[in-house]
Design a protein around this nucleic acid. Structure first.
Lengths: 351, 351
DNA sequence: TCTCTCTAAGCGAACGTTCGCCTTAAGAAT
DNA sequence: ATTCTTAAGGCGAACGTTCGCTTAGAGAGA
């Protein structure tokens, strides 16, 4: 921190009281046009900027939003982190807010302590949460302590107890199934996440919806669950390709891009060609998706808009005391069609 | 911000003056063991946490470090962002500091204004810079205004005017060349960045060093420059594969993983197999590198250690007034050998 | 002329700390 | 008994704002 120009110095130079300078800076009324102009002149001349801590102390406002997130394992990139952060602090800056990033702790007790500390010391005015999962401890904690927050993600389809924006993953997967069905696929497998993943279940539910819409039965043999890694995708697909010809899937819907990458590898290893022989779709639309061989059809989430809107809503609440409608919002992802679902020719008589 | 417990409330309950409570909180001497214990008791009971803005105002310290970075284009992930951020705010938290993230502006004037503003308003005590390039405007600006900062990256091999940690990219590339030479490769091409990239030139210089060490001549025909995208990698490699057999490279060293991905695609498109027919190496060791077909040999940077050390050094400077030695440090990357450089059998008589 | 209203600006206080100096009392040294 | 030293804690002030009330003075209406 620098010792910088203060209100008093500006006031002295402008020949007014420092409180009057404050009024000018904050656009409060009752300053004559001439003095106002003069004061602005001195402010520009001295390059005055209001001290953040003085202001915050007096206003009881930090104009700072806290955010933490679970680090990705080293072998897995977080495909949305950069865009999400950028959209948030860009929106924040427009309103004079900034983003404070702090460490994630897997231990709930410790994590809640950090939330509490940051809010109680007046470092932040509120939080953005992301990647909520079943039994998320932070949500009830923040609600109970009346600590403002918005979330990227929801806990429960019905629960409207806190403001959130979430992606309707199910709708995205249903789109993918639709697309595959329209290409002639009838036996569509799913590489899903473990059952304790809320996001995973939401996406999988879209798989069932898509099949039902096409009048297809879902086959438990064609649903394989596992961590969303490339290795799991590889093994699961190897298993699927080994099924008897009359059960074997002609397309695989993956709940994220990593599994899709593994699936495509397995398909190639088996001497087949993704797209032509077996359709593959991913989820996330990772930057690398379009550079895979063949480029991967994937489901893309409107991350920048989500980050921006979350931030705007939180700030609106902090300034006005109430959230803009809708408090809870579900946004649609979009299917990016590429060659991993192209060129398929249904074998007649097998259908 | 919440209206929380203050020093005065603790003092009232403990039957001392509030300044005495402050002494206890800050471990200043001259408080008797009994009263100290009593005061700690009340602090725990009331769950007191010192108000951040009050403290900062008085101490003229924000205990906050600012960081901004250029957003990656949508089709390109930032492979190190998550790890770098995590390592920084983890190290910061240990010392009671936090990380403030703010928007990047391509316009220098605007960007410098933001730096100035954040520091002058007392929001941050210093900055971490990254991805420095030739003519970086922020460095002279911060130096001139005596604003503390440390950098991930350097501007010039000689320049020690500011503290930095940088990866010796050249050494990494030289390792890759060494490795290829040891496999029997003699004609090694390079996919390099445009000449205006400092990091790119540093890496390319290692290519020359590696060749020289092996007693090989560098051939200008085998060096192709372009933006570090997959498309550039594809085109450049297609060109290289079209060279006459006695010039055509048997291995390609790429200055980042994206170009390597494009190169591998081009090799496969030409009916060849990366690794067995043409060796390929990347740089960054992107999480996906190990999941490509074949897995990509790449150069990995010790990002977590860099982030942690940068933050520790900056904080040490802020607290003590001087940087720990060494002020400037070059760290070595490591070569992760995978199948994209395996299985090569040199054609006899062609060497 | 007197009162009333309104505008422009001043002033004291407060936000929650920390800092440095002062006071008190007890015990040691003379 | 007197002075000195030290430990324990009190007290005023300051960090840079903003808030709300007060005041001075000008102009209008009676």
């Amino acid at each position: 921190m620098s010792k910088s120009v203060t209100l008093k110095e500006v006031a002295a130079k402008a020949g007014v009281s420092y409180q009057t300078v404050s009024k000018v800076v904050n656009n409060k009324a009752s300053v004559s046009p001439e003095t106002e102009k003069r004061i602005w002149g001195v402010i520009a001349e001295l390059n005055y900027t209001p001290n953040y801590n003085g202001r915050s102390l007096r206003r009881q406002r930090s104009n700072t939003i806290g955010y933490t997130w679970e680090p990705s394992p080293a072998d897995q990139a977080n495909p949305i982190l950069d865009a999400f952060l950028q959209s948030m602090f860009r929106a924040a800056e427009e309103e004079g807010y900034y983003l404070l990033c702090f460490p994630f702790h897997a231990d709930d007790v410790r994590m809640l302590k950090v939330y509490h500390q940051l809010y109680n010391t007046g470092r932040v005015d509120g939080f953005v949460l992301s990647r909520l999962n079943y039994g998320e401890a932070s949500v009830p904690f923040l609600l109970e302590n009346k600590i403002p927050f918005v979330a990227f993600g929801r806990l429960d389809d019905q629960d409207q107890s806190f403001p959130y924006i979430d992606v309707d993953g199910g709708q995205g997967v249903a789109q993918a199934v639709d697309h595959l069905v329209s290409l002639g696929h009838r036996r569509i497998a799913a590489l899903a996440w473990p059952e304790d993943s809320r996001v995973g279940n939401n996406r999988l539910e879209g798989y069932f919806r898509g099949l039902a819409k096409a009048g297809l039965m879902s086959d438990p043999n064609l649903i394989v669950r596992g961590e969303g890694t490339s290795a799991v995708g590889f093994e699961a697909t190897t298993y699927l390709l080994g099924l008897p010809a009359d059960i074997r899937p002609t397309a695989i819907v993956c709940m994220n891009d990593m599994m899709a990458i593994g699936a495509m590898q397995a398909i190639q290893t088996a001497g087949l060609q993704p797209g032509r022989d077996i359709g593959v779709t991913g989820f996330d639309d990772t930057p690398t998706a379009r550079y895979l061989t063949p480029p991967l059809t994937s489901i893309s989430q409107p991350i920048p808009a989500i980050g921006e809107n979350l931030m705007k809503r939180l700030i609106e609440y902090l300034e006005s005391g109430s959230y803009p409608e809708p408090r809870c919002e579900l946004v649609a992802p979009s299917l990016e069609i590429r060659e991993s679902t192209a060129g398929y020719v249904p074998a007649k008589g097998r259908i």
